[in-house]
Amino acid sequence: MSSLTLSNLTASYGQTPVLMRVSAEFSPGRLTVLAGPNGCGKSTLLKAIMGFLPKMHGDIILDGQPIGQIGRRRLARRIAYLPQESFCPDYMTLGELVELAGYSRYALVGGPSDRDRQLFRKALETVGLADKAHLQVNTLSGGQRQRAWIAMVLAQDTDIILMDEPVNHLDVKYQYAVLGLVRALVRQHGKTVIMVLHDLNLAATFADDIVLMNAGHILATGPVSATITSENIARVFDLDADIFPHDGRLVCLPRLAPSASASA
């Protein structure tokens, strides 16, 4: 199990600062959700961990080692990343896509080992697409395609998985199916998952920990039950919401604003 720590992370796109002195610790074997209003720096935080930002200060430590010192290939064996938008070229089959995930383990010549192939099969079984490996990814339905990308992330076989809004384009049924699957990975396989999620109810249902961000700062962080409170939601989203337990999980129900400020 790997531990991931950020301290005093500051980053900017050009002149616009997007992360300001962010510090956080992601517990191994837990599902952490990053939430906050649009443009608060959630996705940027994931990109910072992946080393995709040109200008960045502060430390990101993976198991005691600064992440910038770990080469791309070695990092790919520790952390997998699912971007917000995924693009698959035409004619690529699901099997080929999943096989690409093993890139960091392959030698220059020679392809996947038997263990790799077993891993690919298991990844496809986990997302329920084992019988679709021969189909072209772009002919799959939206929900199947998103599960295909998740299978690719699983096939990379890393301890840590970063996901940027993995259920964004899915209908509610697949939202629950995909997130349930991710939570099972955390519970059964001890993966550490850090996930950007917009929907607080989904976060409350599936996450262990939550990090609430606003304007490049972390405003609150901790276990879901203690952190999703009316007070925190008001501070982070500028929104009045009722938070109440229902059937063993928290529900977040925003109050209707007075009509005058409805558009604000």
Binding site: R72, I79, Y81, P83, S86, L100, S104
Partner: peptide, 17 residues
């Protein structure tokens, strides 16, 4: 090169420089 077809960030996250 096949991985780069998926986008540079996806390729980098899979271990491609």
């Amino acid at each position: 090169l096949t991985l780069i077809l998926l986008g540079s960030e996806k390729a980098a996250s899979a271990g491609v420089n």
